[in-house]
Amino acid sequence: MDKNYLKMGPHDVGGEESLPIDTTDNNMTHWEKYANALRIVVSSKRIITLDELRYHTEALGDQYFEIGYFERNCLSLHNICIQKGIYDTELFQKIKSKKISEFDVPIVDLPDVASINHIHDGKPHLHNMSDFQEDESGDGPPDYYFDTLAIAQIFIDQGLITNDDITLKIEQFDNVFPNRGKAVVAKAWHDNLFKEALVKDAKKAISDIGIELETFADIICMPQTDTVHHIVVCTLCSCYPRTLLGMPPSWYKSRSYRSRVVHEPREVLAEFGTIVPESKEIKVHDSNADMRYLILPPRPSNTEGLSEIELSKLVARDYLVGVRLPK
């Protein structure tokens, strides 16, 4: 039966045929980190909810897959602000022009080496040209970065958020959140009682060891076993336990991964180099609402006697989504 009429929009991709997955994580540029931080700050302060953002992203229609993930976020945030009257187009353009002008610095002519070598403490002091290279090259920031900076500036001017909120969030995503999941898994490998508590009620167990996840979503921990292989996807957007694992890798947000894992998990796992034997059940978790998932990988062999810190260095992010297993 053709059930295409049920498709809610461009984002509802679960079950589509799609291309092979680019399994490398392409990481994030600074503007993407900034855009991500702004989105999280705005939604955690409930200035605009995540569901509103999703709704407006889904409403982008054909544009949805024509522009990138963070571009979609930026555009939907802007559309909501205009619709809700948080600012108007005139104010936005004025602030955006100001932001663009802040980047509009004159290109400095690099000095000639001969003219800048000088006498220093009575001795000739020789410089290399590399001392004078500019540290940025290539094109300027993308236009969406200026949009994002303008939106943030208006929120700051209105007293809704501060610059420090955004900076802190960027730092947490870089340095704090990605390490939490690794520490939790290493502790579960090391301490059987903690493992039991984690599988029983992950959010409570994680909170009990002093990690506050700052999210109202619940966390469910699924341990990989000899008989069941777990794998996580969000077919509708990119739900992911961000405050436990950091940002999702680029492939997790890709159309290919979101479309295919649900209906051909073995083929997708093989693209990550994970061959699941026929004797094992594959259980796919579509993280489509208020739960977030942590897959607990088996402890690697030959690690007896290692400390929690040493074990945490063996935890790879891909294990925690279920696309790979430790050797």
Partner: peptide, 22 residues
């Protein structure tokens, strides 16, 4: 059961998928 969700599921009978539904 994956077999109940997809017409031509190529995996195993025991494979499952879990979702959150209001």
């Amino acid at each position: 059961k994956q077999m109940d969700v997809w017409d031509n599921y190529s995996g195993k009978d025991s494979d499952t998928i879990e979702l959150e539904i209001y």
